[in-house]
Amino acid sequence: MPSETPQAEVGPTGCPHRSGPHSAKGSLEKGSPEDKEAKEPLWIRPDAPSRCTWQLGRPASESPHHHTAPAKSPKILPDILKKIGDTPMVRINKIGKKFGLKCELLAKCEFFNAGGSVKDRISLRMIEDAERDGTLKPGDTIIEPTSGNTGIGLALAAAVRGYRCIIVMPEKMSSEKVDVLRALGAEIVRTPTNARFDSPESHVGVAWRLKNEIPNSHILDQYRNASNPLAHYDTTADEILQQCDGKLDMLVASVGTGGTITGIARKLKEKCPGCRIIGVDPEGSILAEPEELNQTEQTTYEVEGIGYDFIPTVLDRTVVDKWFKSNDEEAFTFARMLIAQEGLLCGGSAGSTVAVAVKAAQELQEGQRCVVILPDSVRNYMTKFLSDRWMLQKGFLKEEDLTEKKPWWWHLRVQELGLSAPLTVLPTITCGHTIEILREKGFDQAPVVDEAGVILGMVTLGNMLSSLLAGKVQPSDQVGKVIYKQFKQIRLTDTLGRLSHILEMDHFALVV
């Protein structure tokens, strides 16, 4: 994948999101292997301009796509893939009243899908469409860049269908997702969380590099694949309309690839034109409109599966009536509230959605109805927002919020430890010299600072030695090549209790 991002070429006709291997024109390309080798690009942008032909009021008969309808489940399912879809609609009884809503608040519980998330729908649909058009064949390999849930859905379907599955996901995604993927037989590649989507090191860039190296491999490409919004247009939206008897006044959905909100909203605009569509985008993402909503100094966020630093091709923002931004604290607070007060075992993005819903639905009156999409299960986040310690460490809970008995030293300040200034190293000294210094002084790690004293990161003896043994660096290389740029900081005025929580999850903390 090139470091400079080429513009994806656009073909003359058809839909841009065809499933299957992508040609340089962004659509299915038939021909000899030699032709494909000559024409197939190194990668295709996940934010390529959409060429979708959908228009409100256009006859369904003019759609270029294969459409399906929700099917009634048999008493005995032939395999677990038949437990994807037909998820329950559940009334939220307490939270709406707590925040003064007059309307009825309903939750579409997508964590009841077989793999635990709304992404099971698009995973199965992308595979079925690729099999139907002859792209996927027995023994082929599926590769997908994902925040985890699409990966789980694909790995689940691949396990049943017999495909090899490789999932490329950023490091910030939970260990629970990784464990589930491994249990399903998927191979996992992790990428830096802070890598831009168009960087060769991003999950998108690495996935395309693997595709170019592995024979008979395919990126189904949830960011561009029409099967993504079509899955929701054909099934999720129809289920909502049936469950609500066609009567709903507002739908609120958090947005990642945009397939969920695009597919549902398009069908609702056709069948229930008075329904307002509300999009939820986390602070630090750029999906919301108008652009002024996205202006923030924050560039990272903890909530998973929603928000991006690019506009995915499948996201149709014209069908969203209003956007709201959400933050991590309210997302996790509301997710825990949904679990504790409503018994809905949902993930953090569901918290984002409901946090926005109780604001947006203030305009609705008694007798009206708001539906929220709860995308995934708490299963993926047992060591994250479900953990009091994690919430404390991230600053989303305060010590006084917890009532468990603490040891005698818990409320003492870090400054009472009488710490001395640490050994520091410059980023320009060599790895070999740094190892000598650390061994001589008896230290395992040291902060790396520039000549102005600005902290650049941390270097550890173990990481340097393993990097040297693996051949990633040489003793003569500058130590700046092996620094940890993500590390926890703590102030002298913070409590030892807070430091204790940090050290339970990290090997060190830097006192500043």
Rank of each mutant, 00 (worst) to 15 (best):
E34W: 07
C244T: 02
K137S: 06
R209D: 03
T262V: 09
G256D: 00
S63T: 09
P78Q: 09
Q222H: 02
H65D: 01
F111K: 04
K94S: 15
K247P: 07
G14K: 09
I264L: 15
K137M: 08
I152W: 00
P145D: 04
F112M: 08
N149I: 01
I214Y: 05
G31T: 10
S50Y: 02
I95F: 09
K98G: 14
D234A: 09
S32H: 05
E213H: 06
I122K: 01
E270L: 11
R209G: 09
C275Q: 07
K39T: 11
G100E: 09
L184D: 01
P170I: 01
F111S: 00
H67C: 09
S63Y: 03
S199Y: 06
I167H: 08
K72S: 04
L220I: 02
E213Y: 03
I92S: 05
A48M: 10
Q242R: 11
L106W: 12
P21M: 13
I122D: 00
P215E: 08
G205N: 10
R91S: 08
T193H: 09
T262E: 00
L268F: 07
P12E: 09
T262G: 06
S123P: 08
K102C: 09
G256V: 00
E4V: 11
H66L: 13
E34Y: 10
G151F: 02
K30W: 09
L241C: 05
R51D: 07
G96P: 11
K83C: 10
R209W: 08
S174Y: 01
V90Y: 03
K75R: 06
R51C: 03
S147N: 03
K98R: 05
D238R: 12
T257F: 01
G185I: 00
L101W: 00
H22W: 06
P16S: 05
K269G: 06
L156G: 02
S174K: 02
K75E: 06
D198K: 07
N225C: 03
L136P: 01
S202D: 06
S117K: 05
G148Y: 04
R132M: 12
G14D: 13
D198S: 09
V10W: 11
I167L: 11
I84V: 14
R45W: 06
A71T: 15
T235W: 09
D234H: 05
R18S: 12
K267G: 08
V180E: 05
R276E: 04
H203P: 06
